[in-house]
Amino acid sequence: MAGEGQAVVVDGICKSYGGDVQALQNVSFEVKPGELFGLIGPDGAGKTTLLRILTTLLLADSGSASVHGLDVRREFSAIRGIVGYMPGKFSLYQDLSVEENLNFFATVFGTTVKANYHLVEDIYRQLEPFKTRLAGNLSGGMKQKLALCCALIHAPTVLFLDEPTTGVDPVSRKDFWGMLGRLRDSGIAIVVSTPYMDEAARCERIALIQKGQIIAMDSLAGILASNQTETYAVRGEGLLGVLKALRAYPETRYCYAFGQEHHLVLKGDADPKGAESFLRAQGHQDVSFRRIEPTIEDVFIALMQDQADV
């Protein structure tokens, strides 16, 4: 059988909602045991649909998928015993305490907190001072940690996380990715979706997903290396004025704000010197141009522009 020994195999999955909404179009990928795999794309790209199919909560229209060799359609109940799932919406019991939620999920899966405590210890220790607090009264960051504990307490071999870091501040995000890295090191396969492009660096491999299709898949380094669109960072006083002028320049293909500078891609092999003199002629004297290595956001934008131009 193809994909033997893989933690997750997805082969040609299609799913539509009510005919005209193609949520997933022919999606295929594999995830190895002990791999941290990122599904990166915006709201509406199809990430949640895909995770719901893999956790056997939704049936695909066509194509096949398996988790540790178990088919998502025929062997759904076996899959449910070996996967952990953290949905995008907080779905623990708000009127049970921290401790009660964890006990509940352990019991549902026929195990005890004691038997698997070593799996969650690292994370649960931070929740322990609040273990009698109702889950509904926890802060965002703590809710997320508790949800992760509850998804782990039955010792799953594959973990599916749907946008665990959306709306979470940068410090908590960083901590959360640290936890995922340690879980991965312990041998669990992790499939995580996120709209934050910068989180790509935390994954072994990523799939960029947009409008139900995977538009690129590789390691971050691989994706960056295969998309060397000539990109210039432009700085200058009055960023909005500079942006508008760059967009008005006839040789500009596209230009977007990136923090304190703009990233510019020109048509064909147009010379950036031309853009520079155009800006000066428009009264932007103090501009500077430098060639940069595209970031993952640049690549995502480039791939979207390529699609739009087809």
Partner: peptide, 24 residues
Amino acid sequence: DEPTGGVDPIVRRQFWDMIYEAAE
């Protein structure tokens, strides 16, 4: 208050174009 979660990088920037124009 956290106006832009979850959208693609182009849409996020289109939103910021609107912010700049309002400020202007």
